[in-house]
Design a binder for these strands. Structure first.
Lengths: 270, 270
DNA sequence: TAGTGGTCTAGACCACATA
DNA sequence: ATGTGGTCTAGACCACTAC
């Protein structure tokens, strides 16, 4: 059997039809060996990035992709497996494989780790969201560094308060790069029902894929106190988040203050 | 081909040699269908739990396990893949598959998420560890609940301070169930060099596999202030951790106070 | 040279969803 | 009935490590 050998970088070059080279060196040279399924993964990633497959839409079946990339179904499968484990794709048995989105009810507020002490009404997300401000400013040095742009470039700055059961609990300041989010206004934020990251997807084509947070304990200043209806002596969680889209490109800096008297930040360690 | 059909719950019943039943119902009945590799995973888990394979030791090769469990190598592979992704096993190409441990330098302090602001000397773990106290007490209501034992049962209570560059940064109180940790003393803790979870493995055969943390911002009391050389006005991160061994059995409750003026708690969101 | 994990294929069959 | 993802097998070959 195996009339056509499965060599990775040889003969009819399965993947080359769409992507050149990659590990196109010779056979057993050291510089960069990339298994086939990793190359397929990159190709799928590019289609996601380019918008060929939009959020919540189905991507082609494993068999179709196998034909398209000229590899076996099992190889496509392994590539999709990894993308699914990274929450970029969602598999649904019998239905297909879909582009992940922040808008689905199951995974809404995927990046929000604050939960109420009384576990009853959990994970539903904040009951009220109040946009305080949304303005265009120039990036300071630290904002620019976080967003990987140049100091002084235009960014959008948003401030909002999230409440649980009418109790202000989270005060957030956001900075977004000006170009991709051109046209975002306070009114548009207020009008949209649902998670902000879902709005970013549908209105601006920006999918947040991964985020990193730095957490500290701090005391609020007077302005923050007023917005959160708390005192200057109440310690708060400071949560600084950088959210990334494809290719590890930072697209949002978010500084949050969390009241943790009735809620806690949850983390699981593996 | 395929002289022997790969039916999951039929004929020669591959796995039944070691584990009976599981999904031993009929063919297409609804109650509990478990794929073969999941059953293999359970079997491997049992061998880990029973101590048949000890931390840092190699487990049998995929081929050997395939023969032992009477399944194909690919099925064993998928079971091991999942266990590796859960950090219970570590694969090393060309060498074998090994039981994970907290003692290896790479993954030491796997559960510690505090990092210095200056990323230079990162992830090396605390420079100094000072055992303040280690005593036998009776479990209060909340301690008992966390450890899934009865109120009033014997537990060990440990208090210690971790310092980075001679600066006290973490104050921790630990509670351990009395029975599994019988014989643990302050001197023994002091004598051991290396992570505490490594000591638990080698001296008491308790492997911590997973943990959950609840994080809040708090102000310290006077005693805590003294131990951390800080003031009552300095907010601290309160980190309450429950660590689990196999079968989701809680084996440690830990309450930590982190100074976050020169360090931050890092979390990645996917 | 031998043994281990890692990749890739081809084909069969099962579980699930939909028409 | 059809198509999708999910499981399982068998076999070939590659990459890495050790002896």
């Amino acid at each position: 059997m195996n009339t056509e050998p499965p060599s990775i970088s040889e003969s009819s070059a399965p993947v080359a039809a769409e992507l050149a080279g990659q590990a196109a060196a010779s056979s057993n040279a050291t510089p960069a060996f990339s298994p086939l399924y990793q190359q397929i993964k990159v190709l799928i990633l590019q289609s996601l990035q380019s918008g060929e497959w939009k959020p919540s839409a189905a991507i082609p079946s494993e068999m179709d992709l196998a034909v398209r990339f000229k590899v076996s179904q099992g190889t496509v499968r392994k590539a999709i497996d990894e993308l699914a484990s990274e929450n970029l794709l969602v598999r649904r048995q019998g239905k297909g494989t879909f582009v992940a989105t922040h808008a689905e009810h199951q995974v809404q507020y995927r990046f929000l780790r604050l939960f109420p002490d009384s576990g009853d009404l959990q994970g539903e997300g904040p009951a009220q969201r109040q946009i305080i401000d949304c303005k265009r400013v120039r990036a300071s040095a630290d904002i620019a560094r976080a967003l990987a742009i140049r100091q002084g470039e235009a960014v959008l700055q948003v401030r909002r308060v999230l409440s649980f059961a009418s109790v202000p609990t989270i005060l957030e300041d956001l900075w977004l790069p000006g170009a991709p989010f051109k046209g975002l206004t306070a009114d548009r934020l207020r009008a949209y029902q649902g998670p902000m990251y879902a709005l970013f997807e549908t209105e601006f084509g920006v999918r947040m894929v991964r985020a990193e947070e730095k957490i500290r304990a701090v005391l609020p200043d007077v302005e923050q106190c007023a917005l959160l209806h708390t005192s200057a002596k109440t310690p708060l969680l400071s949560v600084e988040r950088i959210a990334f889209t494809y290719n590890d490109t930072p697209m949002e800096l978010r500084r949050g203050l969390y009241l943790t008297d009735t809620h806690y930040y949850r983390n699981v360690l593996n």
